[in-house]
Measured scan of single mutants.
Amino acid sequence: LIVDEAINEDNSVVSLSQPKMDELQLFRGDTVLLKGKKRREAVCIVLSDDTCSDEKIRMNRVVRNNLRVRLGDVISIQPCP
């Protein structure tokens, strides 16, 4: 998924579009594992966002710094076991 700027300022939340959440079989409030660069990982709570496009994930600056990614970078997402 492509990293995009978050609207809310919550450090533990990322936003996906509802069709993408359905495709990944995620529900609102699920915890997910995000994988960024240099084997960096972060655990976040996923919320749906109608304004977010299907191929993007919204996260704020703190999460991006933790993953060592910038806007427009590609990250992977998976549900936490």
Rank of each mutant, 00 (worst) to 15 (best):
L24C: 02
K20F: 04
R39N: 05
G72D: 05
N60M: 02
E55N: 14
P19F: 15
T31A: 08
V3P: 00
G72F: 03
R39Y: 06
P19V: 14
Q78G: 09
I57N: 02
E9T: 07
L24G: 01
E5S: 13
V74S: 10
D10P: 11
S48H: 04
S15N: 15
V14W: 01
I7K: 11
A42N: 06
K37W: 05
K20S: 06
T31Q: 15
N11A: 07
I77G: 01
V63S: 05
S12D: 13
D49P: 01
G36S: 11
K20V: 12
Q25C: 13
T51A: 11
R58M: 09
N65Q: 08
K56P: 00
L67D: 01
I75P: 00
N11V: 09
G36V: 05
T51V: 06
N65K: 10
D4T: 11
D30A: 12
N60T: 11
S12V: 09
V3W: 00
E55D: 05
L24A: 02
M21V: 01
Q25L: 06
L47C: 09
P79V: 12
P79D: 03
I7H: 06
N11P: 12
R68G: 13
K38I: 04
I75R: 01
V32M: 06
D50A: 11
K56F: 06
K20Q: 11
D22G: 07
P81G: 03
L24F: 03
R61N: 08
K38D: 07
I75T: 02
L33E: 05
L1G: 02
A42W: 09
L26G: 01
D54I: 07
K56G: 13
C44I: 05
E9K: 05
S76W: 05
L34T: 02
I45P: 06
R61C: 12
I2H: 04
D54C: 08
R28Y: 15
L33S: 07
D73T: 04
K56Y: 11
Q78K: 05
L16E: 01
N11D: 04
R64H: 03
S76I: 05
T51Q: 05
N66R: 12
G36L: 01
E9A: 11
D22L: 12
P19R: 14
V63R: 03
Q25F: 06
P81Y: 05
L16F: 04
G29C: 04
R28W: 06
L47T: 07
D10S: 06
D22Y: 09
I7S: 10
D73P: 00
L26I: 08
R70P: 03
K38W: 12
T31S: 11
G72S: 04
K56L: 10
D73S: 12
E23C: 02
S17I: 01
S12M: 15
L67Q: 00
G72A: 04
N11G: 09
L24D: 01
R58N: 02
R70Y: 12
V69W: 00
K20T: 08
V74G: 08
V69I: 11
C80Q: 15
T51K: 09
S53T: 11
V43Q: 15
D49V: 03
V13H: 14
I75N: 01
I75E: 02
R40C: 09
F27W: 07
V43M: 15
G36R: 03
S17T: 06
K35Q: 15
L34V: 10
R64P: 00
N65F: 07
R70G: 14
R68F: 06
R61Y: 09
V43R: 15
V3S: 01
T31H: 10
P81F: 05
G36W: 02
K56Q: 15
N11E: 13
A6R: 08
I77A: 04
V14P: 00
P79S: 11
N60H: 10
V69L: 07
L71M: 12
P79A: 13
D50G: 13
R61T: 12
L26M: 10
E55C: 12
L26E: 00
V63T: 15
L34G: 03
E55K: 10
R40G: 15
N65P: 00
I57Q: 01
D4M: 10
C80E: 08
P81V: 06
S15L: 13
S17D: 00
K56N: 15
Q25H: 06
D22M: 09
L34D: 02
G72T: 10
C80R: 09
P19I: 15
I7G: 12
E41G: 04
S53D: 13
S48V: 12
R68W: 05
I7Y: 04
V3G: 01
L67C: 05
V69R: 02
G29Q: 07
R64G: 02
K37I: 05
D10T: 12
I77C: 08
C80K: 02
T51E: 14
G72H: 04
R61S: 11
M59I: 12
E9P: 14
R28P: 12
P79W: 04
C52D: 03
R70L: 14
S15W: 08
N65Y: 06
V14K: 01
K35A: 08
R28V: 13
Q78T: 12
C80L: 13
Q78L: 12
D49M: 01
A6N: 12
S17M: 00
I7C: 11
E23P: 00
M59G: 00
D22W: 04
V62P: 03
N60F: 01
N65V: 06
A42I: 04
L47R: 12
S17A: 05
R64N: 03
L1A: 06
E41N: 03
V62Y: 05
R58S: 04
D30P: 00
L33T: 10
P19A: 11
L33M: 13
G72V: 00
D4W: 08
P81R: 05
T31M: 12
P81T: 11
L33R: 09
Q25W: 04
F27R: 13
R68V: 07
R39A: 12
S76N: 05
E5R: 06
N66K: 15
A42L: 09
V63N: 04
E55T: 10
G29N: 10
R70W: 06
L33V: 14
D54L: 11
D22K: 09
I45Y: 10
D4E: 11
P81N: 15
N66Y: 05
K35P: 01
K37C: 05
L71Y: 03
R61M: 05
R64D: 00
C44A: 11
N60E: 04
C80W: 04
D73C: 03
R61W: 07
N60R: 03
N60S: 15
S48G: 12
V13M: 06
V14Y: 01
T31E: 14
I2C: 06
I77S: 00
I2S: 05
D10C: 06
L24R: 02
C44G: 12
V63K: 03
D4S: 11
D49W: 00
T31F: 05
S12K: 10
M59S: 01
R40I: 10
I75A: 04
I2N: 09
R28M: 13
A6D: 09
D50E: 11
M21R: 01
Q78W: 11
I77Y: 01
Q25S: 13
S12W: 06
V63E: 05
N8H: 10
K37R: 13
A6Q: 13
D73K: 04
K20W: 03
E5G: 10
I77E: 01
L71P: 08
R68Y: 15
R70T: 13
V3M: 05
I57A: 03
G72E: 04
V46N: 01
I57K: 00
V62I: 13
L67M: 04
S17G: 06
L24Q: 02
V69A: 10
V62A: 10
L67P: 01
Q78S: 10
S48E: 14
L33C: 14
I45F: 11
S53H: 07
D4R: 02
L24H: 03
Q25D: 14
Q25P: 00
V74H: 06
Q18F: 05
R58H: 04
N11K: 08
S17K: 03
V43L: 08
S48F: 03
V74Y: 09
M59T: 04
C52N: 03
G36F: 06
N60K: 03
D10G: 08
L33Q: 07
C80A: 14
D50W: 05
I2T: 13
L26H: 02
R40Q: 10
D54M: 12
L67F: 03
G29D: 05
N11H: 15
K38T: 14
V74M: 07
N66A: 09
I45H: 08
D50K: 07
V62K: 12
L47H: 15
V69P: 00
R39P: 08
K56I: 13
A42K: 14
V13F: 08
V13Y: 14
